[in-house]
């Protein structure tokens, strides 16, 4: 019997009075990897940011239950401490704050690891993933390329080892080499038991992964859920081809 980790119930979300999500339902059991695909403006990032608790996204209806607890109104830092980790589509620049120091702080906050131990862990992780050690002494995301930022997000996820990893378009704006590295980290975390919600516009990162379920989001609703065959269908015929009523597997 798999344990239910994330349950999203009839989720309605507004941004600045405009309704973006109009009733989203899905469940993710612990250790599963789910993919959410959808055209631009369908509400994919909204879904990620709402689960992580961005204050700009107001839940007007519905609930988010994580690990058996309702977190719909929880602060973002509380959710993070419970084990939800969002890898951002656009990680922000924080000037003056060194990557290494920030990571130490993150590890302390999210895993209770003391600074000295964290320091060693971070360097070890960099080595394990084959990243450049020099990135640790730079300022957080300042002057980083798109690919570098995404890698840095992966490194954090790898260190934090969250229960649930939400990835908001980890494959946008990265070259093929970086894409492989990013997919490698995701696969590794997945193998180690992290539940993953992967949001993507393209299917290309899925070549390297093995999702249990694929959801298609259109105009704020999950129109269909199924397996990898959906990805193929979208690749061949585009999102227009995927409609709840026409596709064999319904949500």
């Amino acid at each position: 019997m798999v344990m239910l980790m994330l349950k999203v119930e009839n989720l309605h979300v507004n941004v600045a009075e405009k309704e973006i999500l109009r009733g989203v339902d899905f469940e993710l059991a612990s250790g599963e990897l789910h993919v959410v695909m959808g055209p631009n403006g369908s509400g994919k990032s909204t879904l990620a940011l709402t689960i992580a608790g961005h204050p700009r996204y107001t839940v007007t209806k519905g609930r988010i239950i994580f690990d058996g607890e309702e977190v719909t109104r929880a602060k973002p830092e509380e959710r993070a401490r419970k084990g939800i980790f969002l890898s951002f589509q656009h990680p922000v620049e924080v000037e003056g704050v060194k990557v290494i120091n920030f990571f130490q702080r993150t590890l302390k906050n999210l895993r209770g690891i003391e600074e000295v131990e964290a320091y060693d862990m971070i360097f070890k992780a960099v080595e394990e993933l084959g990243f450049e050690g020099s990135m640790l002494s730079r300022e957080l995301n300042v002057g980083f390329s798109g690919g570098e930022r995404k890698k840095l997000e992966m490194l954090q996820a790898y260190l934090v080892k969250p229960k649930l990893l939400i990835l908001d378009e980890p494959d946008s704006g990265v070259d093929v080499d970086s894409l492989k590295v990013i997919a490698g980290v995701i696969a590794r975390l997945h193998k180690e038991g992290t539940g993953i919600l992967l949001i993507t516009h393209y299917g290309r990162i899925l070549e390297y992964l093995n999702p249990q379920r694929v959801h298609v989001l259109k105009e704020g609703r999950l129109v269909v859920s199924g397996g990898m065959e959906l990805v193929k269908l979208i690749e061949e015929k585009g999102f227009a081809a995927v409609n709840g009523d026409e596709t064999a597997v319904k949500a």
Partner: peptide, 13 residues
């Protein structure tokens, strides 16, 4: 706001 959220999502209040 976004920068603040980024840090909060890493567990800082």
């Amino acid at each position: 706001e976004d920068a603040l959220f980024y840090l909060r999502s890493r567990g800082l209040d």
